[in-house]
Write a protein that binds this DNA or RNA. Sequence first.
DNA 1: TACCAGGTCCTCG
DNA 2: CGAGGACATGGT
Length: 220
Amino acid sequence: MNIFGVYQKLFKVYGPQGWWPILVLEQGIKYSIPYRSLSKYRASFRDPYFEIAVGAILTQSTAWKNVAIAINNLYNAKVLTPNKISRIKTARLQTLIRPAGYYKQKAKKLKIFSDWLVKNYNGDITRLKRCKASEIREKLLTLWGIGPETADSIILYALNKPLFVIDEYTRRLCKKYSVEFKEYDGYREFFEKKLPKNNKIFQEYHALIVASGKDKHTKI
DNA sequence: TACCAGGTCCTCG
DNA sequence: CGAGGACATGGT
């Protein structure tokens, strides 16, 4: 199985996905904001880098459409920053993210993650970039509610560091080509070893796998 | 109307 | 360990 060939094929069929989708203020919900332009959307009431991490937590076993509603609620309430989430009452946070499902658990997860950012990184998620990806990963995995897929999504999409994200769609795709591992890291290292170590490709590839995974008529 | 979605944690053997 | 269950809403 030529893994880069599969990527090119996916790209040809589904086109650039432009992940991670970000809520853009002026025009309501919009997707495909280039990573380099995220910084100009930073404000006291919302942080797009943090928003990506929030989305990664909220989308755990949940359709993105529901997550988008929850993120929109957080945006309208002007609480899309670590400091605001850390201060907000749990009951109110639960109400805002309710459309994303598992809302009690996820409110707790967002609280724990935000408290941790406030305590250790002055409420600025981009300060994590100073560490190596592997170190960030270890730290994130110690937090309750953040498992390997969520940690890797945060590192790849919110911090723009090259770690390959594995999800159920990725495992299914691999299985089609008779590639199987027992552990999450088996899959991750398989992709990381065989692909050029390039953030953009990792970001696009995972998004394309999800796009084809959702497509019932996928031929890849 | 069932089934399922861009997982993670907990419990029990 | 590893299997099985809990967590929850909205779309198709």
